[in-house]
Design a protein around this nucleic acid. Structure first.
Lengths: 245, 245, 245, 245
DNA sequence: GTGGTCTAGACCACT
DNA sequence: GTGGTCTAGACCACT
């Protein structure tokens, strides 16, 4: 007799996979409301507690959304891009992703992003980028490092957004999310003029010179990443783990 | 008057952010064991239940791992790449990511992957790829469609792995994870000979012809993606939501 | 591992601390009008109910004042000294403050008050005190015990007021507020002539004999307090808790 | 016909005064549990909202305590000394209490406190004070200003505690609570050696020289208060309102 | 011994 | 009125 390994599924897992499957099949769509906790507990013949653990874990991966109050309840989420970022962050904290890998991946993906953008950029998109650079310049002159970092990261997010591709946006945001902490602690890159580089990049974009634009971006990112890696090494420790506050 | 939105923090969120922060700072590292649930509840001055919800959500994003039994306990995870895939999948199910975006992003990222690989490929890597293609060929001849799909997807994962960059591996796996379901249901691409295309790709790689390799990959992926998109359209509905089982 | 107690903030607390902070910083001053409840609810992104609870608790500690009607609204209070008295009363009812502690503290603080007053008393102030004593004498002769008690307590408040120091006024009022209940129920002190003692006190004050004035006050207060404590003991029970109506 | 002004009592006030009255009479004592919200609403024939507002305001003045969970409910509080401090703070923020009044009142009350302590101080109490001064000295040497401020304030609280009189403790804490913010922002007093002054004070206490002890305390407090008042004036604005963060 | 599950009951929040 | 959040304490299942 062939016996298959028994895999005890925890109660909450059985619940969450059942709900997930219904979402996957399209029976449940974004915005749909599930029965309340008490009813779910009854339907699954488990305690409310087990239901809550299941809902909680589905909430944390962005499939559900729990809302309190009279109009509250359990809803199928409309997507939670931060869930991807959080999971990626976990990989960085404990999963053996090094800063070097992170920056390399970012360089490759952002290069691809920029190539896509070149073919789709219109006047409105260019204006957004130019506004960002102008604001970053003002922040730099005002010595407002916090605003400067935020605006610089925003520039890269903008590029991703201009591809019109949500997947690339989500992935880029996840990577930038982790790099943001470095940027804020490591302080400004001194060996190059970021604003001037951005200006050159925008000129290339406006003129449709894709290869020059990519080259400019690569040069700039390489400098920034060298800066991060140097700072990390300077601290000696902590290949895994981020610099403390 | 400037008033900011009130954000009440739930107990389990306060707990998980406190633990996450200690992981981020490097105080807790992969493999470390946390106090048990009862002790955590006492330390945080909350119920065990609140602790469990926090642990559960951290487990689902891949930061912790819970193990039952006498030698069990709560451990800092060594990374859970599937967490990224799950979160991405959530975005696809409910978050408005279309198949078109998914395939476009995949094309761009895999192209970048291939370029990286070209510069680093050694004999061992090439052998792995060739073995994969050989096995896929046998599966095709044997008419074993399941094995064929698995091996084809494995080919793309192999490419990512050969970059040596975990971030790219994780991202590619997340994308392939979603595409796998399509591949299995849509059936084999008929308008092209995948095995032949792979062979050409490997020849280019072996000869160091990066641009030709990329061109071959792009051509192949475009065909596959057209195939998926066509199948989806054929079904009429369900831009969001996957075809049922 | 160092873990700190989790403190979840309730919605109404988040609201009240945000408004309190703006008052503390001086952004909001006495008399200023806040947006109405509906607007506040919108600004904080909570229900009107949560806003009301926050406003209510701030009203009860004397930071806000809610006024009904067409010209009504939520206003920053100009101070509510009774709030201190109420909180102190709470400590007496349930917080383990004994009558003995209360009377001791009162003796010490009122002594300090009298010393301050000695240095600042002018003719107008003396006249106020003398008027009070005269009125108390008339009430005593008329056998109007209620008026007598009120006027006697008023005498002590007057002393505090004559320091010109609001803090001392508020603290003294808080203590007298609690003692008033005793005075009204315990009935008049019989072992001494309060009016005569007051007259001596005023003569010392007029003559600038600070130490004699203080001695007279102390003697008088001690007698009264003995009276209270004796009455309480007579009832047997209720160190905490007040004698019933 | 004599008509008395109509005073519409709001629903929540009627509720809270009814409960307060029962506490005052001793029917309800610290630790007692009240019926739950729904039952109270029914008993008072009002909405649960009105009940909640009443409970909330009684919680903020320290008469009740609300606890969540299975063993939760509405309980008569065992006293909340911070309620007095909060109310006093409100008076300072908006009620026209000036820093000058605050420091004067503190000087008077703490002087009275010290006099009381002189008559009751035992070896254990002296040891507590000496330990505090020693710790403050270490913090000063280590340049840890935060710890220094905390320890210095703690010294004054200790003095109050050593009177054994809860009223004085509560009042002193209320005053110190407001002064703490100044101490932290204004920075250390430079014109005098606080530690040396404390040492002299303790020597006087140990030797039973009450007047010298008081004189030393007064001198020290005057210097500190001058420091605060000078800093406030330096800022130009904000007699009401505290210096911003 | 530790995570997993369960129960009953209460506050918290929203409309 | 409805539903989410939290609590205390118990037993079960696994190693």
């Amino acid at each position: 007799m062939r016996l298959t390994e028994v895999k005890t599924q925890r109660a909450f897992e059985a619940i969450s996979s059942q709900i997930t499957e219904r979402i996957r099949r399209g029976d449940l769509r974004a915005g749909d409301r599930l029965p309340n906790e008490r009813e779910l507990a009854q339907a699954f013949a488990v305690s409310r507690h087990a239901v809550r653990e299941a809902l909680r874990s589905m909430e944390s991966v962005g499939l559900l959304h729990l809302r309190k109050g009279a109009t509250g309840g359990v809803f199928v989420s409309g997507g939670r891009p931060e869930a991807v970022a959080e999971a990626m962050r976990g990989m960085f904290y404990v999963g053996g992703i090094s800063l070097a890998e992170l920056t390399e991946a970012r360089l490759e993906i952002e290069t691809a992003v920029l190539r896509l953008v070149c073919g789709r950029l219109d006047e409105a998109g260019l204006a957004l980028l130019e506004d960002n650079v102008a604001a970053a310049e003002r922040a730099t002159e005002a010595g407002d490092n916090g605003a400067k970092v935020t605006l610089n990261i925003r520039f890269h997010e903008l590029l991703a957004t201009l591809t019109g591709n949500t997947v690339l946006v989500v992935v880029m945001k996840a990577l930038l999310d982790i790099l943001r902490e470095f940027a804020q602690r490591v302080g400004p890159v001194t060996e190059m003029d970021v604003i001037a580089s951005r200006r050159r990049l925008l000129r290339h974009l406006r003129a449709g010179r894709q290869d020059s634009a990519v080259a400019e971006l690569v040069r700039s990112l390489r400098a920034v990443h060298r800066h991060y890696l140097g700072a990390l090494k300077g601290r000696g420790a902590a290949a895994p783990g981020m610099p403390g506050p």
